[in-house]
């Protein structure tokens, strides 16, 4: 049986904390380890920060959507924005690469999402938006 939840929130940096707490609360039913919860919180935080900073270029009037679904012990996290999109996804995934170098960003967002989750998929269209789909299977039942 699949369980699902969906939230929509404004593109404000305050909501980074909100998004990762919501995701962490949702996966609590899977009885995850502390490490797994931290992994999810960090990956969600990176994805939402990307949507705010890059997708919407810090425009607080825009909306970010987060959808999480659980099937057995596997959770899929979807973070969607309708922002500028990513010009070169392969480039964006490279460690230390950032399009906003002058602001001293680490350029590690996608690298962390990739290493902390089991699977990472990025769908993006210039001018249309970006969807990040991350999947993680939790050990304890």
């Amino acid at each position: 049986m699949m369980e699902m939840m969906c939230v929509e929130f404004e593109s404000k940096s305050e909501n980074e904390a909100f998004a990762r707490v919501v995701a962490a609360a949702f996966i609590a039913r899977l009885n995850p380890t502390l490490d797994e919860v931290e992994d999810v919180k960090m990956a969600i935080s990176e994805a939402v920060t990307n949507a705010i900073v890059h997708g919407y270029e810090n425009d607080p009037s825009k909306k970010i959507f987060m959808r999480c679904s659980i099937e057995n012990q596997t959770c899929q996290f979807r973070i969607m924005d309708q922002g500028v999109g990513i010009a070169d996804i392969e480039r964006a995934k490279e460690p230390l690469y950032s399009t906003k170098k002058d602001e001293e960003r680490a350029g590690m967002g996608f690298t962390f999402m990739d290493t902390l989750m089991d699977d990472l998929q990025i769908y993006s269209q210039l001018g249309e938006g970006t969807t990040i789909i991350m999947t993680k299977t939790f050990s304890r039942g």
Binding site: M42, R105, A106, M108, F112
Partner: peptide, 16 residues
Amino acid sequence: QFMDSAGIGLIMHGYQ
């Protein structure tokens, strides 16, 4: 209690 890549950005900023 929690840190993501923004914290790394802060360290790099200080380092620079």
